[in-house]
Design a protein around this nucleic acid. Structure first.
Length: 593
DNA sequence: ATAGGGTTAG
């Protein structure tokens, strides 16, 4: 058997495997067990190995040059279809001499651009099986793919293989792993990796490493550490750039700290670090939230005219949503007009937002008209679009129409989400059919659909409102068995349910349990308690009220959240390592041991 | 040839 025939049969086999039914199982199965497809036998014939070590330059043909040209382009834009990428890969495997490390890395990059992470991992597996050489860059690309597929286990096993293969991880490899850890909410581990890099003088983090760390710290709720690191960066060799500032600004905006965000926005401009479209979007969001409409208009003008930054779909969608939610439908439509004029065309999110606005105004026909119009424009409605309409019908108690729509969306090939199910459950409860809702819940659970905490909240609320508080209590106990841990909202929902149904002793027990778990009564619960106390003088109720007051709920009342002010301080000018380790005291302990 | 920001749905 010649090398070519084995190789080409082998290639087709791999391709079929990827294109066939087993393909959907992602590349990770291949990563763990290559022997399952009989490759071990293939390995043992050393003379069947492709002769990749033939110097490339002497054999470069026209097709190699064509390939290189194609890959350069596709690694930036991605292939139009997944199959196109697979066909190119198959052709590459048949070429002699084989394309080089860079060519294969570029093909993987094209798959990354297409967000086809598991496929990239699968191709990488084939590359290894065929003994095609890889580099630290190839490995970094694949580690990134594992992280994006939430497979940290594979990412770290590949990380270990870097050393076995005799490569050295670079700053990109480490940054990728740090991002992976943070995206999986493993912020302690990310911090440990980050500090160890510095402490063990492995390598110097660059501005991307810092920004990744800062963004991740913000997203995992460690904004104080993020701010510290941000100010530390200002004095380091890698000062913050636009992305770093944007991460902090976004975080401040999400906390409602509009003025702090605006100050930072001015600060960066003073330092000559130019904001971009990413920087402006969260600022618009927070200004809208606080009804600072004048400033919104001014900022939009400044952004476009002075800074010459074009708002994009994201920016515009934030504005459309904010205007709609404040009943300023005309302003929302004006923004959509502006989008069309500027060639930044509205997308499915824009139209779903607009439909949501019509539904909120009770103009469901207008919302349906939008749906018809986008279908003409060949914009495909997604699950969220349907969820909005489903919710509107459920609110009007037209559950039969909602169910029709539900069947429609499934027929269109859309997979219902937790939100879809939440909307339908809510609809059943509204109609006073809590037991049907509960049965529906069990049905979707049996079907293997995910039940999240929001679904439980909907069901608990529905049961309590329909005087099925005993059923609510059993569901409350059941949810932790199903791996969904009650949070502050869960406790407050069930406690209010008990109070409304005069189960005061049960409410007492739950408040105690809640406080033990570190949660407090919210404004609605406190308000209900006060209302009840003004009518009924029940001693257990009074004790309950006292307990709630002692647990310190005053900071939040009547649903108004008052954000705590943040002081952005500068780190003291000590030695670098001292300073950096100060932000992560837990890690210092770990490092010492 | 590899790494870092944002929108709709309780």
């Amino acid at each position: 058997m010649t090398l070519m025939s084995v190789s080409s049969r082998f290639c087709s086999f791999l391709l079929r495997r990827r294109l066939g039914t087993t393909y959907s199982c992602s590349g990770f199965e291949l990563l763990s067990s290559s022997s399952s497809i009989g490759l071990v036998h293939f390995h043992s014939h050393t003379n069947l190995r492709p002769k990749y070590n033939v110097p490339h330059s002497t054999h470069i043909s026209n097709s190699h040059i064509k390939l290189r040209h194609l890959l350069l382009q596709k690694s930036k834009s991605g292939f139009e279809k997944l199959d196109d990428a697979l066909v190119v890969f198959d052709k590459m495997l048949k070429m002699r001499p084989l394309p080089n490390v860079i060519d294969f890395a570029q093909l993987l990059t094209a798959l990354v651009v297409m967000k086809q992470y598991p496929v990239a991992v699968s191709l990488f597996r084939d590359i290894c099986t065929l003994r095609i050489p890889v580099s630290i860059i190839t490995l970094s690309i694949v580690i990134n793919c594992c992280c994006h597929s939430n497979r940290l286990d594979y990412a770290f096993s590949l990380f270990a293989s870097i050393f076995k293969r005799g490569f050295v991880p670079n700053v990109v490899t480490y940054t990728t792993l740090i991002r992976g850890l943070l995206s999986q909410h493993k912020s302690a581990e990310a911090r440990l990796l980050f500090t160890n890099l510095i402490k063990l003088k492995e390598l110097q983090p660059n501005v991307v490493t810092y920004s990744t760390m800062i963004n991740g710290l913000c997203k995992t709720g460690h904004i104080d550490m993020a701010l510290w690191l941000f100010r530390f960066m200002g004095k380091s060799d890698s000062p913050p750039n636009t992305v770093t500032y944007t991460a902090i600004i976004d975080s401040l905006c999400k906390r409602g700290l509009a003025d702090d965000a605006l100050n930072l926005h001015s600060e960066m401009m003073e330092k000559g670090i130019l904001p971009n479209v990413w920087t402006y979007s969260p600022i618009f969001q927070v200004l809208c939230n606080f009804n600072r409409w004048e400033e919104v208009s001014l900022l939009l003008k400044q952004m476009i005219e002075d800074m010459k930054i074009s708002p994009n779909v994201y920016t515009f969608n934030i504005l459309v949503d904010a205007y709609s939610k404040s009943g300023k439908l005309d302003d929302a439509k004006e923004i959509i007009e502006m989008m069309n004029e500027r060639g930044e065309y509205p997308n499915i999110v824009t139209y779903s937002t607009l439909m949501q606005a019509y539904c909120a105004e009770g103009q469901i026909d207008e919302a349906l008209a939008v749906l018809d119009r986008i279908k003409i424009k060949e914009i495909r409605p997604d699950c969220c679009t349907y969820n909005i309409l489903l919710d509107a019908y459920c609110r009007r108690l037209q559950l039969d129409i909602a169910m029709d729509l539900y069947r429609n969306m499934v027929a269109e090939g859309l997979e219902p989400t937790v939100e879809t199910h939440r909307v339908l459950l809510n609809g059943l409860c509204r109609l006073g059919k809590p037991m049907e809702a509960l049965n529906f819940l069990y049905k979707i659970q049996d079907q293997g659909h995910m039940l999240d905490i929001v679904i439980y909240h909907t069901m608990l609320t529905g049961l309590c409102k329909n005087q099925y508080v005993h059923k609510a209590l059993s569901l409350f106990h059941l949810m932790s068995c199903n791996g969904v841990i009650p949070d502050r909202d869960t406790y407050n929902i069930i406690i209010r349910g008990c109070l409304r149904n005069k189960k005061f002793s049960e409410a007492c027990k739950l408040v105690e349990k809640m406080v033990d778990c570190g949660f407090l009564a919210d404004a609605a619960t406190t308000f209900l308690l006060q209302q009840l106390l003004s009518k009924v003088q029940d001693p257990s109720l009074l004790a309950l009220h006292q307990k709630c007051l002692h647990s310190g709920i005053q900071e939040e009342f009547h649903g108004l959240r008052i954000p705590k002010p943040i002081h952005i301080s500068c780190p003291a000018e000590n030695s670098m390592n001292q300073n950096l380790l100060m932000i992560m005291p837990e890690e210092v302990q770990l490092c010492k041991s």
